[in-house]
Nucleic acid binder design. Structure first.
Lengths: 344, 344
DNA sequence: CTGAAAGCGCTTACAG
DNA sequence: CTGAAAGCGCTTACAG
């Protein structure tokens, strides 16, 4: 391995001069700089990351904590991973991916041994067990997803309440009077996925305000129960003219389910949903939807974390930030003529 | 931060004694060990990973190189990531996840700066541009996927040829005389995904040997073209009694497509495929299939890489290993009565 | 504009 | 059974 000492010897300068030439923290004469650059190129020198980390107390690595739950639609998580990773690289950080089933312990292991400069927590729940560990550890962290107690924490999440209101408004404006809502599976509620009830409560409240009937259900995460469940809901509410789907597995399966049932969208049934652009493209989903902006959450979360790590004044006090949803109209809703009703 | 020096002072011993007590590389008197353990617990000491790496030249981190191709069914990659990560943890390694679009450069950046002890390359193609970088770098690597030139490389992949033969045999044994094969999209061939032609060539050859008609096509990776393409193939070969699907996106969409078409499996059409157990569960696929054993590949690849890193004599010379496929019969094929023919 | 020296926090021969 | 010392490869005050 070639070290900074080899470069220094080769260039006939001191190690500190090489270091300064590389970091640019000192003015170096053109001639010296050139000799050093040549030596670096000839010897193929790249600074040792561990030695640098030891000296500077900066690893330039971020820990990304993923959780894989059985009974959850895994592809939905993928949409966060790539944006986080790319945003990190753009800021000069690499990603240590942590899939340990025991998240709290993993945070201590990684954090206490100074393997990373900060943490990104994905899929955060209301009383996420990883949060106490995160508070105990030296490194700052950013949460993607809203916990109950956000004190002293940088948190970012989609504004799920607003998303629900936008979708209900969209249907209300088009004259819909009776709609069915499919939320994530109930076990996600039990686990504390706050996005479930934030979306659901807001949808119910908004519907009530308009005097709009809404039938709210928890959905499924696996075929064929998904199909059975959707069919049962539509059977139970034959006069409903619209379906609001806040459930990744269900929306991915919905085109097949509706075709199977002979229901055309939007002619027989209007459908609105909530998913990220990438997810929609992956499954070729043709529905009007709020874009869940996984990339924006990932990017913005990483940016805030880096500001916190570097103690940038722009970081401000720790704060929960809610990203405004954007509705993408793909024409999967139709105006309802008050005198007609649909059978699906 | 508490260092090994703090622990030593607190316990009234030397730093080397603390180090040896922690590593167990020396016998320590019961009393001393106890004092050290108490000091470690009271002060909350965890060794600094960077310092340890600097001294031992071991990072205990593995670089995992992922590639995200537009026009590829991303969920299929997920099935490798978790097994690799878990196998690594079981061996004491963490995972640095590298999603850099420029893989060759990333390998040099990470490897030359000694951030990892070895590399795992996913989704390797015939002339994978990352391989020259891997050869130049100090760290060993394991490839999951078969390149053209495997010299001096540890490679592991499913035996796709054998997988194809098993599926053709399965159909032949049940009296099928005319079948349709859907391979991955053609752009995967262009990119050098050798599993495409290894499977396809073996299937065609095996079918020929039995005098079995096989119509081989490249499939699609996105709806709605997937559906159109499958429908066109079935229209073009009305006397085909079986479909062999070697295409993740297509098999995930197939249940919907066939329902839509009014084709029952296996009554109207036999279907066999190739996918991992996790993938099948994710999409609730009911087809008889060779299990692509992503977890076995991941585990086994990591194990071999670790043997290589640690220079274990068990590592042997670098070798391409082909995992034997296992057929999982889910009853999606039926015996063909030679006198009947199907219309689908 | 450049160099000599200290030190980041460990591990491990060397010595007793 | 234990300790003092060297050294891994960097960065950065301190000094000139």
């Amino acid at each position: 391995m070639t070290t900074i000492g080899d470069v220094a010897r080769h260039a006939g300068v001191s190690r500190s001069t090489v270091s300064y030439a590389l970091s640019g923290k000192r003015t170096i004469s053109a001639e010296t700089r050139e000799r050093i650059e040549r030596a670096v190129a000839e010897l193929g020198f790249t600074p040792n990351a561990g030695a640098r980390a030891l000296k500077t107390s900066q690893t330039m690595v971020l820990g990304l904590l993923l959780q894989f739950h059985a009974d959850e639609f895994a592809p939905a998580m993928l949409q966060y991973v790539l944006p986080v990773s790319q945003a990190a690289r753009a800021e000069g950080y690499d990603i240590l991916m942590v899939t340990d089933p025991d998240g709290p312990r993993a945070i201590h292991r990684i954090g206490d041994s100074d393997m990373v400069d900060g943490f990104v927590l994905l899929d955060v729940t209301a009383d996420d067990p990883r949060i106490p560990s995160l508070r105990e550890v030296r490194q700052p962290g950013v949460l993607i997803g809203l916990p109950r107690d956000t004190r002293e924490l940088d948190v970012i999440d989609l504004d799920f309440g607003e998303a629900a209101r936008m979708l209900v408004d969209h249907l209300h404006e088009r004259g819909h009077r009776e709609i069915v809502l499919v939320s994530p599976p109930h076990h996600v509620v039990e686990r504390g996925g706050s996005y479930v009830w934030r979306f659901r409560d807001a949808a119910v409240e908004r519907a009530a305000r308009y005097g709009l009937q809404i039938h709210a259900y928890y959905g499924e995460s696996r075929s064929p129960v998904i199909g059975q469940s959707v069919n049962a809901l539509l059977d139970a509410h034959p006069r409903a003219t619209a379906l609001v789907v806040h459930n990744d597995a269900t929306i991915a399966a919905l085109p097949g389910i509706l075709r199977d049932r002979g229901v055309r969208v939007p002619d027989d049934l209007s459908v609105v949903s909530l998913y990220s652009r990438d997810f929609g493209e992956e499954f070729s989903l043709p529905f009007t939807a709020v874009e869940s902006a996984a990339d924006e959450l990932g990017r913005s979360g990483v940016a805030q974390l880096v500001r916190r790590i570097t103690r940038s004044p722009d970081a401000g006090p720790p704060v929960a930030r809610f990203v405004a949803p954007v509705l993408r109209d793909r024409g999967s809703t139709r105006p309802i003529d008050a005198t007609r009703s649909t059978a699906h």
